[in-house]
Design a protein around this nucleic acid. Structure first.
Lengths: 137, 137
DNA sequence: TTAATACACTACAATGTGTAGTGTATTATG
DNA sequence: CATAATACACTACACATTGTAGTGTATTAA
């Protein structure tokens, strides 16, 4: 999965993909589909050329995001990961890189941002700290 | 400061900038300098054209990363932010966006990654949690 | 047998980054 | 003063990424 870019001025999948790529992925996370089907879905929103959709879908295969399953005449495309797994993997990578690169600073930002975080998470954090402290002694 | 991209397959400033941009920034964080001076510094490492350095430095001005101060014949360039402030601002933005987009998942990654975090940070975290819990009750 | 369809191959535009040529104005030097 | 060196502007091109779409080919269906 060759995704290494987090655009923090965008939202949702557009943080990782171009806007058309993102829309295509969303559709394929609902259901495995042919190019035609994806194109028709998109076309309902805004006219879009079949070849355009095909090119982008094939590029996503190249990036390792989609997989192509040849089914006789047509090819069916599906993401290699579920949306949940994708989010999990990428957010984990970013978090690790963030901590690795900026260390304590990030923890502080975290704490600042956590003013609105819910009770359950606080409890979890507290538990984890107790456990970590225990390990070290 | 028009920087919105975090490349998590890179390292250091290359996470935010192209490799040449990054080298230029590092030099200017040491000291305000002219194009010629920057070019000569870079040239010691690897031959580089004066115009190349000029173009990239002017583009960084366009991005709001550098400021140009015309000093008679030559222009002197310096970053608009200290390295510390830059790191602080960007890491904060990324952290906020990460939490905003992925919420609790990120906290969990955080906890996983924190296995190697040092004692002082743990204490800080614990304090913060106590304070947050206090606020809520 | 012809027409529709799916896909391949190719190409172009815009943007970001690295690269560098040429032109112009100013300064320094013989 | 005249010429050369220098600083900078303007312009252009290459490559990568993403969106866009034309043309060509092979297979299926009418």
């Amino acid at each position: 999965m060759d995704i290494n870019n987090f655009k923090y001025d965008e939202v949702g999948l557009n943080r990782f993909f171009g806007p058309l790529e993102a829309k295509i992925l969303e559709i394929l996370w609902e259901n495995e589909r042919s190019i035609k089907e994806v194109q028709q879905r998109l076309d309902q929103d805004k006219p879009i050329n079949f070849n355009t959709v095909m090119t982008v879908m094939n590029r996503l295969v190249g990036k390792g995001v989609l997989k192509k399953r040849i089914q006789g005449r047509v090819s069916l495309f599906h993401p290699v990961q579920s949306k949940e797994d994708f989010i999990k993997e990428q957010s984990k990578k970013i978090t690790e890189n963030l901590l690795d690169e900026f260390g304590g600073v990030v923890i502080n930002h975290m704490l600042d941002a956590m003013e609105e975080v819910d009770q359950t998470l606080l409890d979890k954090l507290e538990q984890k700290i107790k456990q970590l402290k225990g390990d070290k002694s």
